[in-house]
Design a protein around this nucleic acid. Structure first.
Lengths: 207, 207
DNA sequence: AAAAAAACGGAACCATTACTCCGTTTATTA
DNA sequence: TAATAAACGGAGTAATGGTTCCGTTTTTTT
């Protein structure tokens, strides 16, 4: 009698080039549902309350056991990464779209967009912090993609003379990081506007 | 027979208007020595390693028991306040001195000074963060003094036309906070220079 | 120098949080 | 629908870090 073997060689979860987990067909129905739900809740909670919210809290709000959360995302870090990933992905997409516009406009519009979206979204701020905090650490995956997208906008703007030349992408990331951090505790959009004004004029340079 | 009474009504520790603990004569010799030592060590450790360093660590490095630290500073918060206080005090003094200079110069020199001193000093960054993070919360004590000192420099600079007029002190505090935070993880002074350049030009305004 | 007061030291306590383990439940398969 | 595999849930574990308590030591007073 032939040995029992896994009835159908289920395809494994894999990771695509960008680092996102490709949700293959291999998950059981309830599992896929739960995974989705966790991600949903985590995204909202992280955005409104910050990354320090304990996993238990997220599990509770999702109406799901802690163990389940950990099966899907073996560490808190990985859950955060997953959430952060989609935020960055969306921004990258926006950046690409903007490349159509006038170079100077594009760059500054992108900055505005980030600031606007970031105001009041602690998860997004953290996402940017993760690629902007320590600019010496080489990036990879989605963070690198993001930096490249931003870099392209910057380059174009510089070539068009809309942004000073003595500035690099990493400087922008760093500045962005600072602005975000400031806005983390001040969701006043008036402040955001004024800071953006200063940054904008400063980036144009030589008065 | 008369009841025993405290031989000498020792003067109590009090707090002066700025919030600093006035070290009266009431402390025993070893106590005063220890208090000083704790403050010294804490200042250095907080500066180089940040405020997250546990109290135990500070006690150990000072060669003093944990209990002793807590007798002098009933909560970690109070120890931090004490450290932060002296940093701010020094900055305020500098600000006053600078008022002598040309208004525009004074203001920008002060910004440079803070950035220079802040680069690599996590305690100082935290000190500024504490008065700049949430600009809606009304300040008091030393933080208010600091804001006022900064405000005075700003006012003069604005009246002299060296700084744009659509900006308030709290905006400066916020910007400063952001810059500091950025530099917290990047002690590269080149980056500091470039960011300062952008901020400076941005604050001058209307190109 | 003895008594009283002040200060010391650090083990123990408590709260928080990330993460594990395993008995139970649910989905899938045959 | 019974057997099997997959996934679930949450009590329990471990590490961390702030704070308290109290027996011991040091300083000050008489």
């Amino acid at each position: 009698m032939p040995e029992k073997e896994p009835s159908q060689a289920r395809e494994d979860k894999g990771t695509n080039s960008t680092g996102a987990v490709t949700t293959g067909k291999s998950l059981r129905a309830d599992a896929r549902r739960n995974r989705e739900r966790i991600l949903d809740v985590a995204t909202k909670v992280f955005a409104t309350e910050g990354l320090e919210v304990p996993i238990d809290e997220i599990a509770n709000r999702a109406g799901i056991g802690i163990g389940t959360v950990y099966r899907h995302f073996p560490t808190k870090e990985e859950l955060i990464e997953a959430v952060v990933f989609s935020f960055k992905q969306r921004l990258i997409e926006k950046a690409r779209e903007m490349l159509e516009q006038d170079p100077g406009q594009a760059f500054f519009h992108f900055l505005s967009l980030i600031v606007r979206e970031g105001t009041g979204n602690k998860a997004l701020i953290a996402a940017l912090a993760r690629s902007g905090a320590d600019i010496r650490r080489p990036l990879s995956g989605i963070s690198l993609d993001f930096q490249n997208a931003l870099g392209e906008l910057l380059n174009c703007a510089q070539q068009a003379g809309s942004v000073r030349n003595d500035i690099q992408v990493t400087d922008i990331t760093a500045i962005l990081f600072g602005v975000m951090r400031t806005l983390e505790y001040n969701d006043d959009s008036g402040l955001a506007e004024r800071i953006l004004l200063v940054v904008r004029d400063g980036l144009r340079g030589h008065c």
